[in-house]
Amino acid sequence: MKPTIVYEVFHPLSWGADIAADFFLVGLAVGAFLLSAGIKLYYGPKKVLPEEYRKICRIGAYVALVGLALGSVFLISHLGRPERFFMLLYRFQPSSVLSWGAWIQLGFTICAFWYALLWWRDRPGEAKHRLVVGLIGSVFAIGLGTYHGVLQTVLKASALWNAGPTTVASMLGFVLTGIAAVTLVIALRRRGEEALKAILAIRWVFGFAILAQLFTVLLWIASLYAGPRDAHVAAELLLTRFPMLLWGGAIGLGLILPLALGFYAIAHERKDPRIGVVIPAVAAALVLVGGFILRYVIVVAGQLS
């Protein structure tokens, strides 16, 4: 006969919405930076960037810096002893993923600041300089994005986190939210034709990123469900305790609805060009909301599994 647990101690969760916000904002910064630097790298030092791509690059650089700054505030304020934050740097532990992450985040912070400064100054003759900083920053950005996934994946204590696709889903989610944030800022700051051109320039990348994220998240859930006992229990926990947040928020609101809106915009933008700006802006806002919900669900459910 199976026993029922009638007395057990459960300590408060140590990671909550603040860590989810840190992951979300830093991830968004990583994605925005990669978009900006990626375009710059694609065009190289000699080709002149078309105006709409220049806008995307500039806004991507600013979004990366702001996202990183806000994320770092959440990270440091989460610490029980924030005044000891600097110990992360001078007491480096090679065996700790978190220790490596602190240094990678520092490197990315320097690059993101420098890169944003170069775009803000916008001096002629600094194109090569921007390219080099963008390249170095991209290495740190990929490292930082990967680190945030690996940070959770290496913990055997959580069957939900300790699954292969966790890191891939995290990284894709970061790229997606970065593109969404840049799209939203373009729609809010630019007017008419200018905004439309810039949004059209990244529309397909945005759509593809949504599809890729949707596929990865579903694959992640399926692999957990079909996995060993602990992973299966974790998947059941995810599906039974967080159904609204997962299916309704992260997947429905954050991925499927934006995708549907994208198709609607493609079908109707010829009649009214404003649709080509307003609809992607709404889709981007939804992706950001869904991205945060997904991050929150992963952080909380992972601690329960």
């Binding site: 459960f10 300590h11 408060p12 140590s14 990671w15 989460h78 610490l79 029980g80 002893r81 924030p82 000891r84 934050f85 110990m87 992360l88 007491r91 700790s96 978190l98 940070l151 913990l155 055997k156 204590a157 959580s158 992972g302 601690q303």
Partner: peptide, 27 residues
Amino acid sequence: ERCIGCGYCVEACPYEMRYLHPETKVA
């Protein structure tokens, strides 16, 4: 005196035996 209260060790313990002390704010 070396703990920063990040909670990573709390997450790493598969037996859930660690917690963040509500007063000292360390593990």
